[in-house]
């Protein structure tokens, strides 16, 4: 139930939480989500790097806050009233770990049909191919389903990628 990617292909319809990071919309399995928090006091971790630069107090535990926009090279964030931290539970090297994911705006829980998704295109992508599981559609716009296991295994390293002029829009 908590394995992020194992069952995603087993059934056609999956419940996902959709959210924005800059101008891109992402989706992740709703089953992974533990809580959605408003922005709260954060503690910076000097020397930790931009991917997991801070920690927060979540119900008495100290959990890292990860910024997927860093992994996808989406540029600097600006905190707004809509900013949220989505707390998920992921398997890191065999241990279930609570991680807070930054989101500029959280949309809704939607049902996604896996059959209607496509593999990430080989050209025209600004970011690492292995970080994207597949791409769906939401209201006519692309919906990116990230490969969280891969992103965290590589600790969010964006990798060398030339800035492509093409975009998916």
């Amino acid at each position: 139930m908590n394995q992020p990617d194992a069952n995603l292909n087993a059934e056609d319809l999956v419940e996902v939480l959709t959210f924005d990071l800059r101008r891109e919309t992402f989706a992740l399995e709703a089953g992974l989500v533990r809580e959605i928090l408003d922005l709260t006091a954060e503690t910076e971790v000097p020397g930790a790097g931009a991917f997991v630069g801070a920690v927060i107090n979540f119900r008495g535990k100290v959990i890292p806050v990860a910024d997927l926009s860093f992994a996808f090279g989406l540029g600097q964030r600006e905190a707004t009233r809509d900013s949220r931290i989505v707390v998920v539970e992921l398997d890191l090297d065999g241990d279930p770990t609570l991680i807070g994911l930054r989101a500029d705006k959280v949309h809704e829980v939607a049902t996604l049909s896996m059959a209607a998704t496509e593999a990430a295109p080989r050209v025209g992508m600004r970011w690492r191919q292995d970080y994207v599981r597949c791409v769906g559609r939401r209201g006519g716009e692309p919906l990116i389903i990230p490969d969280l296991a891969c992103i965290f295994a590589h600790r969010g390293e964006p990798g060398a990628s030339a800035a492509h002029i093409h975009s998916l829009h």
Binding site: T43, G47, F51, G60, V62, T97, L98, R155
Partner: peptide, 19 residues
Amino acid sequence: IKALSKLHADVETFSGATI
């Protein structure tokens, strides 16, 4: 003492956190 997650295991300056 609260342990830091694996994502911060390589930051040697800190051995843990507290609330």
